[in-house]
Structure formats: structure tokens, C-alpha cells
């Protein structure tokens, strides 16, 4: 079965969805991602969906789920590169993904995650001091 590659990028995980998502692929991604967050102790997850043209309610819920799971495992989720048509569809479906952070492109998304990593580090520094 096809799987979507998950790249480690410092303390963050990078997922680029390049193919049309079907439900099994989405479930597999959710599981893999959860495992990888724990394995690498990741603090941020960046999901790039700029190549995704069709998003249905299932994929929308999957994004929400991933965000919820990551939050429990102390990682931030940023969804980047959503197309206008996809955004409108998700809103019309009533899925505004309130638990997910969003950014226009990968660059801005990485900034968000880096900032979060710095906050965590400085907090740890504070604890050490």
C-alpha cells in the first residue's frame, strides 16, 4: 500500500501530500504521523496540502484529528498552502479546523513552528536556570 512520506526536519515533521488522498491513505498517514511524533519527540508538524485539489469531509476531519492527537503529544500542527477552492469547500462543510494552525505557504508555516520551538527551548532554559 502507498504511504505518504514523513520527513524529519530538526524537531519538526514535514508532510507533503502530493497525491489525491483516499480514505485509507489518510488513515495510514494519521497512524504513521502519531508514531513518528512519539519516535522523534517532535514539537511541530507541518502538513503541506498545496497540491491537494479535492478535500472532502473525511480528509477535513483527518486534519482536525491529527491536530488533536499532536496537541496531546505536545506538538503543534500547521496546515499550509490550502487552495482557495478547498478553503471554501471546508467552510461550507462546516469544518473550520479551529484546532489547526494555518499558514499561506511552507515558508510561513516553518516560521510558526520555529517560533514555537524557540519558545519551548527558552522555557526549558528557564527551568534549568
Amino acid at each position: 500500500m502507498d504511504r505518504i512520506p514523513i520527513l524529519k526536519f530538526g524537531n519538526a515533521l514535514l508532510v507533503t501530500i502530493q497525491v489525491d488522498m483516499h480514505d485509507r491513505l489518510a488513515t495510514a498517514l494519521e497512524e504513521d504521523l502519531t508514531a513518528k511524533i512519539v519516535e522523534y519527540n517532535a514539537k511541530g508538524v507541518l502538513i503541506d496540502i498545496s497540491a491537494l485539489e479535492i478535500v472532502d469531509s473525511f480528509i477535513g476531519r483527518m486534519l482536525d484529528n491529527i491536530a488533536a492527537v499532536s496537541r496531546i503529544l505536545d506538538a503543534d500542527t500547521v496546515v499550509v498552502g490550502m487552495r482557495p477552492a478547498v478553503a471554501i469547500t471546508l467552510v461550507e462543510l462546516g469544518l473550520s479546523l479551529t484546532g489547526v494552525k494555518t499558514a499561506l505557504n511552507v515558508e510561513r508555516g516553518m516560521e510558526l513552528i520555529k517560533a514555537r520551538l524557540r519558545t519551548t527551548e527558552s522555557e526549558e532554559d528557564d527551568v534549568e536556570q
Partner: peptide, 12 residues
């Protein structure tokens, strides 16, 4: 609110 939510999904 829909418009705001859609803009947020785009990162704005």
C-alpha cells in the same frame, strides 16, 4: 464568519 474562517484556513 464563513468568510473569516475561509481566510483563516488560507493562513490570513
Amino acid at each position: 464568519l464563513k468568510t473569516v474562517a475561509a481566510a483563516r484556513l488560507m493562513g490570513a
